[in-house]
Design a protein around this nucleic acid. Structure first.
Length: 511
DNA sequence: AAAAAAC
């Protein structure tokens, strides 16, 4: 292991790294920083979580001339969230040097970005579409770029950005340093490397480090309709500190997060149809621990570095094995252990084996917890909650009530009653998630193909639809905070409290 | 087929 102080890094950047708590260089950093500072092109084969951003961020910052107002470095990333994350980290690395950095991505007011570009950032991080937009508007000039970074290149390929990247590259001087990062090296990526890079050095993380060694992988065999109850029970028993639940579609994510909130969990959904502001705030809340469960499409599968994710649940098995690797890579990071649990319907069992071949690791079958086990998990939480409340000692408003009650009832009974009240009986609120149809059965135009399609008219899909039992979701306690209502149906005019809204939906009969 | 990404 090499210490950063042994690398030939300037004092100001050393200070920044120290402030960030970085001491030892990770393998990808060691190689990339060394070659990068020699001005060489580098291909880094590594996933996030390996310290990739600092690997290219350090040589990039070192090369920046802060007295030069031109954009000198450009980083292209596949998703908006990743662009934000990368820019934040590079900002920290460049803090000692006072390098100016800006992120540009879609979904954010372009005028704001244009104003920010006038402040002459030296480093720009962005997503392909918006970068191109700025180039066309001539609000972003790239003729001073000396360092170009393609982050998660294989992902940009998958998402069809290659043409965009080609167009961007036409606006970047040929005389430059290019750093390319990719978890995998498929043919087209190699070709890009050959075309756009000059004698690149390869820095490859040994495959052992790229796989998911410290993630325990399980699968749960279950019918589609059982999935949600099993998920709730698993959450109750395993009590993840921070969990990500992946769903296959945006609608699925909406329904799942809604249903989880009904069951009393603090969950928020994230997917590409939400406004960028919402996406950012959800991610922030999750990082701050204000949201315990992030429900996500594959928008959150790759690259995002959220520390402390203890559990990943694949509510739907991912569409391709590669996506599986990325998803479960959100946990078990920074040397910590993590757990990944994948729901598999009987007909998907064969596909599960294909996924296993890709990861070269067997997943162990997990027996879904019984209702009783789940209840026990909840009871433990209730005990902890109560104990914490006592320790916090902010009970003045309740002391008088407590004294009165103690005059009337047995103390043990009272505590037991409080615990019972705090316990959220598993499966108490029946929640139905719309079943995914396995494949689009293109039946001849028939509107009534068994699948209750057409449920929500437009794309305002807000959650579970049919199947909430009216009465039961009265819960005591903390998780009701009004937030769930405002999630994505703020404009639907629905009243905040569940009752009449659910009923009106339920009342919609099918002729 | 889904998701992501520019308006």
């Amino acid at each position: 292991m090499t210490n950063f102080s042994e690398l030939n890094i300037s004092k100001s950047t050393q200070d920044s790294l120290k402030r960030m708590g970085f001491e030892e260089a990770t393998p990808i950093q060691e190689g990339t920083v060394t070659f990068g500072m020699e001005g060489k092109d580098v291909i880094g084969q590594a996933q996030t979580g390996t310290g990739k951003t600092a690997a290219f961020g350090i040589p990039m910052i070192e090369k920046i001339d802060t007295s030069n107002p031109a954009v000198q470095a450009l980083v292209i990333a596949p998703t908006r969230e990743l662009a934000i994350q990368v820019s934040e980290e590079i900002y920290k690395i460049g803090y000692g040097k006072r390098a100016r950095i800006l992120s540009v991505f879609g979904g954010q007011e372009i005028s704001r970005q244009i104003r920010a570009l006038r402040n002459n950032p030296q480093i720009v991080v962005g997503t392909p579409g918006r970068i191109l937009d700025h180039i066309k508007r001539k609000t972003l000039k790239l003729d001073g770029v000396q360092t170009l970074v393609l982050d998660e290149a294989d992902e940009m390929l998958n998402m069809g950005f290659i043409e965009d990247i080609n167009s961007i590259l036409e606006n970047v001087p040929a005389e430059r340093q290019t750093l390319l990062f990719s978890a995998t090296m498929p043919g087209p990526i190699r070709k890009i490397a050959e075309t756009f890079m000059k004698n690149p050095e390869m820095v490859k993380i040994k495959s052992k480090e790229m796989t998911v060694e410290n993630i325990e992988q399980f699968f749960v065999k279950s019918q589609e309709r059982e999935k949600f109850d099993i998920l709730s029970r698993l959450l109750n028993v395993q009590q993840p500190e921070l969990a990500i639940v992946f769903g296959r579609t945006k609608r699925r994510v909406d329904e799942l997060s809604h249903a989880l909130n009904i069951r009393g969990y603090i969950a928020e959904g994230i997917h590409g149809d939400l406004t960028q502001a919402k996406r950012m705030s959800v991610l922030r809340q999750f990082k701050e621990g204000k949201v315990d469960i992030l429900v996500a499409t594959d928008v959150a599968a790759r690259g995002l570095d959220i520390s402390g994710v203890t559990h990943v649940y694949n509510f739907d098995i991912p569409q391709d094995p590669e996506s599986y690797v990325h998803r479960i890579g959100r946990t078990g990071r920074a040397g910590k252990s993590g757990m990944a649990i994948t729901f598999v319907t009987p007909r998907e069992m064969g596909y599960l084996r294909i996924v296993e071949e890709t990861t070269k690791k067997r997943m162990n079958p997990l027996q879904p917890p019984t209702s009783d086990e789940a209840l026990l998990g909840q009871q433990k939480v209730a005990v902890e909650t109560l104990a914490e409340a006592v320790q916090k000692n902010e009970l003045n408003d309740y002391v008088q009530f407590a004294t009165d009650l103690l005059g009337k009832y047995d103390a043990t009974d009272l505590v037991a009653a409080a615990l019972k009240h705090l316990t959220n009986e598993p499966d108490a609120t029946p929640v139905q998630i719309t079943e995914e149809r396995p494949l689009p059965s293109r039946g001849g135009g028939g509107g009534r193909g068994g699948y209750k399609g057409n449920r929500s008219g437009g794309n305002r899909s807000h959650g579970g639809g049919r199947g909430f039992s009216g009465g039961g979701n009265r819960r005591g306690g903390s998780s009701r905070d009004g937030r769930s209502g405002g999630n994505r149906d703020g404009r639907s005019g629905g009243s905040r409290e569940g009752g009449n809204r659910d009923r009106s939906r339920g009342g919609r009969s099918e002729r």
